[in-house]
Design a binder for these strands. Structure first.
Lengths: 130, 130
DNA sequence: ACATACTTTTACGTAAAAGTCAATTAATAT
DNA sequence: ATATTAATTGACTTTTACGTAAAAGTATGT
């Protein structure tokens, strides 16, 4: 894998706009290097971006995502901070578990609806099947 | 369980504002009865609301939620529509499966971060444990 | 040197999902 | 009867997460 990526390479790979990438930078989510004025995204920038997009898919706000992403690269050194950190983690986990349970329920409900559809289709189809 | 709920009862139960409930009504997501000008929410209104809030927690937009919620109470009668319907369901399911996988990954990552925190805490704590 | 294709910054616009405020109206308590 | 409380409508505002357009810089091929 390459060392660096241009902005358009990333926009293509992840199907987002340059505006989005620059916005994330403005918001302090990613800080690519520059060659002259051009942005150069490192592999770890790319990884951060993946994290951000995953967060988005899960419906987290950028502020929430910032918190999560920040956790990954900076575990603080002081005990009090570490405890605070662990609390944040617990919060996020609770959030994720809630989401997961919501998903399970919804999947089951969709299955039911789907079964209903198939039954109806069957009833209709029995009139003229090949 | 009671037959009807007032708007404030629902705002309290679900920790949302009256503005939100009225907004959902404007958007055609819920249609409570009226006694005079006052809204009376039925049990099924309340159920719809739960569905909406679940959708929100999962990061779906109101438009997407409307699609989902609509599926629950109206399976169409015509074959073509039923197939179209099944497609919608498949889309939603794909979305949910993606989300679920994102969640699993994130949960595991959080666990790692947490382990790291505990290790550090342990290292600090060994200086002066009770 | 020149066209072409990217890229950058700056600035303003916008859609979704509410929040907030004001003016009324209706219901209830005293 | 009146004060208080709750609910309604309507208008305006705010926040988030970008979109879009303008104007100018930079790299590349020919």
């Amino acid at each position: 894998m390459r060392q660096f990526f241009t902005i358009t390479e990333l926009t293509r790979e992840f199907d987002i706009s340059t505006r989005t990438l620059r916005y994330y930078e403005d918001e302090g989510m990613i800080a690519p290097l520059r060659r002259g004025r051009r942005r150069l995204y490192s592999i770890s920038d790319r990884t951060r971006l993946k994290l951000i997009l995953r967060g988005k898919r899960l419906g987290f706000t950028l502020a929430e995502i910032r918190e999560i992403v920040t956790m990954y690269d900076a575990a603080p050194g002081e005990a009090g901070q570490l405890l605070h950190f662990l609390n944040k983690i617990a919060e996020r986990r609770a959030d994720l578990l809630q989401k997961r349970s919501d998903i399970e329920i919804t999947l089951r409900e969709l299955e039911e609806v789907e079964r209903g559809c198939h039954e109806r289709l069957g009833a209709l189809g029995s009139a003229d099947v090949d």
